[in-house]
Amino acid sequence: MTSKPHKKHAKLAVPEGGRFHRSEFAILGAPCDIIQNFSQQLATSLSPDHHIGYVDAAHNSEARKDVFTTVYSDNIDHHALTFQDEAIDYRFRSLFNTSDAVLINGNHFKAAKQIVLINEKKRASLERKLDRLTNVTLFVLDDGQQEVFSFLEEHVDDYASIPVFSIKDVEGITGVLKHEISSKTPGIKGLVLAGGKSTRMGQDKGNIDYHGKPQREYLADLMSGFCEETFISVRNEASVFDTQYPLIADSFHDLGPYGGILSAFRKDPNSAWLTIATDIPLLDKKTLDYLIRHRNPSKLATCFHNPETGFPEPLITLWEPRAYPVLLQFLANGYSCPRKVLINSDIEELKIDRTEVLSNVNTQDELASILPKVNA
C-alpha cells in the first residue's frame, strides 16, 4: 500500500519581521542587569511617541504552585497575565501586537536585528555568540570601553558602516532606533469596498454616476494619489465590470465590508490598508489628505469621529497591519462589525469639520436627497 503524498500548506502572504515583532532588537554583550537598565533607558527615551515591548528570561527558576493554567490580574495601573503554553512561539507576535518595537535580552533570545554592547566582562561570551550577529544595528561602548572588540570586524557584515555610541549617549542611540522604527512604517494600499449586494438601493451602488464616472472608479482615482496601489473589493471572482484597477475577491465570504478588509490583509499583511465604502459620494481629496497627514501608525487604525453617531466611522479608515490579527480575533469571537473593532481598540480618532462627507447612500430616497449636495 502506497502512502498518500503530503499536501503542501496553502500559499499565504507572511507578515514581515522576526520571532517577536516586525521591528525587534536583541541587546547582547553585557551582563543581564546592564541590558535591563539600558533597555529601560531606551524605552523611556522613545516614549511616548513609541510603544516599546521587552523580552527577558528569569534568572532564578521557581517551581509553579499555581493550579491555574491562565491567571489575569487587573493591577489598577497595568494588567498582568500569567499562563502556561508550550507552543508560545506562535503567540509572541500577538502578545506584542500593540508595540512599535521590541527590545530583547540577547543573552537569552535571538532577534532579527542586534545592538551589541561592548563590555569586557562579556568579551568571551560575545565571541561564542558570533553566529547571532546577523544584522547589527549599533555598537554601544559600555563605561570604561574605548573601542569595539577587534574580533567583531571580521565577523560582522558592513562593520565599518555601523554606528558606535557611548552607552551614556541615550539620545543618539534612540535617534537611530527612531529612524529604524520609522523605516518600518508600512506603505499604504487602497481598497474601495464595492462588494455589497446593494439590496436596499435596487441597483449597484458602485456603478452610480455622481462625478462623471462610476462611483467605485471615482473613489479609486481619488485614493490613487495617496496609495502605492489601489484595488476594488468584490464579492467573488465572477464580478464583471470595466475598470483599470485590480480586484480583490472576498476570501472571507458573507461578511460584508469586514470580509473585504480581511481579504485585503490576507493578500498583503505587511501594508496598511485605506478602506473606503463605495457609497459615500461627498468624499473629497481634502478630507483624504487630512486623514493621511494625521495618520498614527502606532495605533490600530486612523479614522474620523462621527458626531452624529458618537462613534468612530468605519466608512473611511486607515487600518495598520497590526489590525489584521485583531480583526481575526474579533471574528473568532463572533463579531464582524468594523465599527465594533474600532470602538474597542486603541485608535487615532480625528475630528471632521464637514460631517456631511461621511453621509452614505443606501436607498433611492437617500440618493435623491444627496444629489443636490453633490452638484452644489
Rank of each mutant, 00 (worst) to 15 (best):
Y210K: 06
H211V: 12
H211D: 09
H211G: 10
G212F: 10
P214V: 06
P214T: 10
Q215D: 04
Q215G: 05
E217S: 08
E217D: 11
E217G: 00
Y218S: 04
L219D: 05
A220Y: 10
A220M: 07
A220K: 10
D221Y: 12
L222F: 00
L222N: 00
M223D: 02
S224W: 12
S224E: 15
S224R: 14
G225C: 10
F226E: 02
C227R: 03
C227I: 10
C227N: 12
C227E: 11
E228W: 00
E228C: 03
E229G: 00
E229Y: 05
T230Q: 10
F231P: 00
F231G: 00
S233H: 13
R235G: 12
R235Q: 13
R235K: 14
N236G: 15
N236K: 07
N236D: 15
N236C: 13
E237V: 05
A238S: 09
A238Y: 09
S239E: 11
S239A: 10
S239T: 15
S239C: 09
V240T: 14
V240M: 00
V240N: 09
V240K: 12
F241L: 10
D242W: 02
D242A: 05
D242L: 06
T243A: 03
Q244S: 13
Q244T: 14
Q244L: 09
Y245F: 08
L247M: 13
I248C: 06
A249C: 03
D250M: 07
S251A: 15
S251Y: 11
S251T: 15
S251C: 15
S251E: 15
S251K: 15
F252Q: 14
F252I: 03
H253M: 08
H253P: 11
D254S: 15
D254M: 13
D254L: 11
L255D: 12
L255G: 05
L255H: 09
G256K: 01
Y258T: 14
Y258C: 13
G259M: 11
G260A: 10
I261R: 08
S263K: 11
A264F: 03
A264N: 03
A264W: 03
F265D: 07
R266K: 12
D268W: 01
D268E: 10
P269V: 02
P269Q: 01
N270C: 11
N270Q: 04
S271G: 02
A272Q: 06
W273R: 09
W273V: 13
W273C: 11
W273S: 07
L274S: 05
L274F: 08
L274W: 10
L274Q: 04
L274N: 01
T275A: 15
